[in-house]
């Protein structure tokens, strides 16, 4: 009995080490495969297997005016939103890293609360603010700056401002996380060596915060590419984003085209992420910022 146990113990030594962990991961992995990965894959396959194996859909995509226009709008929107979020977010991140404990916590709450308020509610808030009789127009008329209400809602501007509002925390948190790790002694050393605050910022703080900026830019840009709810609610009918075009095609039951567009969106997203993860420091920032 004992010898049998020993013998079997020896034979199965190496493989057995990973069996138990795999059994723990297996339920989730199978679940994700069944209800997420395989559905996604089978949908995406429609782009090359409808009705027979073909690359025709993709070939058409290159010359498709609608697609090119929508793709352009999507990229432009993502770019504007990213730059806007960077301009708005950097000062807050800097403040967050410099404030005392109590004040910093308060700022963090203000940054995080919208983070966990649903995108829908925040988009709705901007509908209220930017409407024809919305708060912004009322305020502008009350102060006499304009006579007639401006058309703000259902414009690219509304999309940009609402998306910046929604994505701002994704920019602030990684930058703040990097800024907080900058050794205070470094700043005192720079100041001690005679650098005025502006120079300390430009020559020490800013270069050191680049990985955080890169991570923030990546997150905001990637998330912007796939945005759906906000542009659908506050944007105009002519400023379709890629995700809206996809939803539209699904409603029309044009699966091959929708799958084709989805592949394009997914490919752009993954490509950006894979490229950015190769940049120095970005991977670490993303890892710490997600905690």
């Amino acid at each position: 009995m004992a010898t049998v146990a020993i013998a079997s113990g020896r034979l199965s030594r190496a493989p057995l080490r990973h069996t138990a962990p795999i059994l723990l991961v297996a339920p989730l992995a199978l679940y994700m495969a069944a209800f997420y990965a395989l559905p996604l894959a089978s949908m995406l396959l429609r782009s090359i297997a409808d009705p027979t194996w073909t690359m025709e859909n993709y070939r058409r995509l290159a010359g498709d005016a609608v697609f090119l226009h929508v793709f352009g709008t999507t990229l432009r929107t993502a770019l504007i939103v990213t730059l806007g979020a960077l301009a708005f977010g950097y000062p807050v991140a800097l403040a967050l890293s410099r404030l005392r404990q109590g004040a910093a916590t308060l700022v963090l709450i203000i940054v995080l609360l919208p983070f966990w308020t649903s995108v829908l509610v925040r988009s709705y808030a901007w509908m209220v603010l930017l409407g024809r009789k919305g708060l912004v127009n009322e305020a502008l008329i009350a102060t006499g700056l304009i006579d007639a209400p401006l058309k703000l809602l259902n414009t690219p501007f509304a999309v940009h401002i609402a998306m910046i509002h929604i994505l701002l925390p994704y920019m602030i948190l990684p930058i703040a996380s990097v800024l907080r790790q900058i050794d205070g002694a470094l700043l005192r050393a720079a100041a001690g060596l005679g650098a005025p605050p502006r120079r300390v910022f430009l020559q020490v703080v800013l270069p050191l915060s680049i990985p955080g900026v890169a991570a923030g830019v990546l997150l905001v840009f990637v998330l912007s590419l796939g945005f759906y709810i906000t542009p659908a609610l506050v944007g105009g009918p002519r400023d379709l984003m890629l995700s809206m075009l996809i939803a539209q095609q699904v409603d029309l039951l044009n699966w091959p085209y929708a799958a084709c567009l989805s592949t394009a969106l997914l490919a752009a997203t993954l490509l950006l992420i894979l490229v950015s993860l190769r940049l120095p420091g970005v991977r670490d920032v993303l890892r710490t910022a997600t905690r």
Partner: peptide
């Protein structure tokens, strides 16, 4: 991966099979 795959792609993929 659901953290980075665009929501619309996940949604229609699941819808397609469900």
């Amino acid at each position: 991966s659901p953290l980075i795959v665009p929501g619309i792609v996940v949604a229609i993929g699941i819808y397609y099979v469900f």
